[in-house]
Nucleic acid binder design. Structure first.
Lengths: 124, 124
DNA sequence: AAGCTAGGTTTCCGACAGGAACCAGCAGGT
DNA sequence: ACCTGCTGGTTCCTGTCGGAAACCTAGCTT
């Protein structure tokens, strides 16, 4: 059943758990996907992603930068220009994320169907 | 660079985005990993995972159940016994999650190092 | 002088995460 | 009879977080 071994399951405190919490965030995965094609500007990400506020974009990018997954490059121009790109470490995260989004693309509808069929309003 | 195509990046509203938001939650990934070995009881998950409250466990499981990824089985015994197990759909999610946790296990320390080296407290 | 640009920050408010305490319902001990 | 314990779940309360909108910087254009 392709599971995780007994002590293999990451419990509290192990670094795997921290890393999972890193990306288990509403926007992180989407932002990383947006960066996967190469350097992108702040504004480009805003309209590429759709639905994210500037505040959350900046916040997410700063956190990724602090974790060494993203590098920020600000050009001293007017109007200002800022580009973000994945670090080598960050690039290694694209593959797992890609696996995930492929699953989502394949099974998203099934999830939607279940959600649509299930809604037992009350449970005694 | 193994990216996502131009229109391939999931934007708002596509089902992939919804599915990603499904699992982009603090506990969902960990709970699914905990279920990957077969039927597990509520209390077992509590102590297996460590750090999750009963409330959040129940909440997460209910949501996964509503999305068709988990099935709940309550035995009419005393003391009560409730087991949770993955549905076939839910089982298909284990592989992507496994890819993710493998990445986490391999790169968790690098992330920790970056986090530890970076902390530029203030940016003007 | 007013307005545009692009990235970022601040302010405010509603929603939610999370811990602690409580509940149901019956078995077994005293 | 009474009390206590086991297990899963729910309610209450509070700290934190997400999101919208306004404001900021700093130069160039009108």
């Amino acid at each position: 059943m392709s599971g995780f071994g007994p002590g293999d399951l990451f419990l509290a405190d192990c670094p795997a758990r921290l890393a999972v919490e890193l990306i288990a965030d509403k926007w992180t995965v989407v932002v990383l996907a947006g960066l996967s094609k190469g350097p992108v500007r702040h504004g480009e990400l805003i309209e590429l992603i759709g639905g994210i506020s500037r505040k959350m974009l900046t916040q997410t990018l700063r956190r990724l930068e602090a974790h060494g997954l993203v590098r920020r490059h600000a050009y001293a121009e007017v109007p200002p220009r800022v580009e973000y790109e994945l670090t080598p470490l960050g690039a290694t995260l694209i593959e797992p994320i890609h696996t995930l989004t492929e699953w989502a693309r394949a099974n998203g509808d099934a999830v939607l169907d279940a959600l649509d069929a299930d809604p037992e309003p009350g449970r005694p």
